[in-house]
Design a binder for these strands. Structure first.
Length: 123
DNA sequence: GTTCTTACA
DNA sequence: TGTAAGTA
């Protein structure tokens, strides 16, 4: 598929898709006319990259750990370095903190909504 | 009409 | 990240 379709399917700006490629996060081949051509699996790859980005991981870290998280559950032992493990543990802990924060705010908003709805029924 | 690269805000 | 320019 061409970049326009990948953009629609992943709801990602074309600009960002080219940027991800520049950062080595996704791969593409070229059509005779110079247009980028993507394999179907790239759709899931982009979604995963976006997910990691949303959690706050910088592209350089993503590029570094993507091989470990990519598609198949296979483990790439040859690429496991102490440095990589440390990075993953650090990011995992960061995510845990964010989850706590989200949970807390989710409760707060939920409680507020709950109180408001009761208020409306009472009035 | 779609995509490409480069460059600027 | 968005957008503009000039192409292919």
């Amino acid at each position: 598929m061409k970049i326009g379709e990948l953009s629609r399917r992943t709801d990602t700006p074309v600009r960002m898709l080219r940027y991800y490629e520049e950062q080595g996060l996704i791969h593409s081949e070229r059509l005779p006319n110079g247009y980028r051509s993507y394999e179907d699996y790239v759709v899931d790859r982009v979604r995963q990259v976006r997910g990691l980005l949303e959690v706050g991981l910088p592209t350089r870290i993503i590029k570094q750990i993507l091989p470990c998280l990519d598609g198949s559950r296979a483990i790439y032992l040859p690429y496991v370095t102490p440095d990589m493990i440390a990075t993953l543990e650090r990011e995992r802990d960061r995510m845990a903190e964010k989850i706590e924060c989200f949970t807390k705010n989710h409760r707060a908003i939920n409680d507020y909504l709950d109180a408001v709805s009761h208020e409306i029924r009472a009035s």
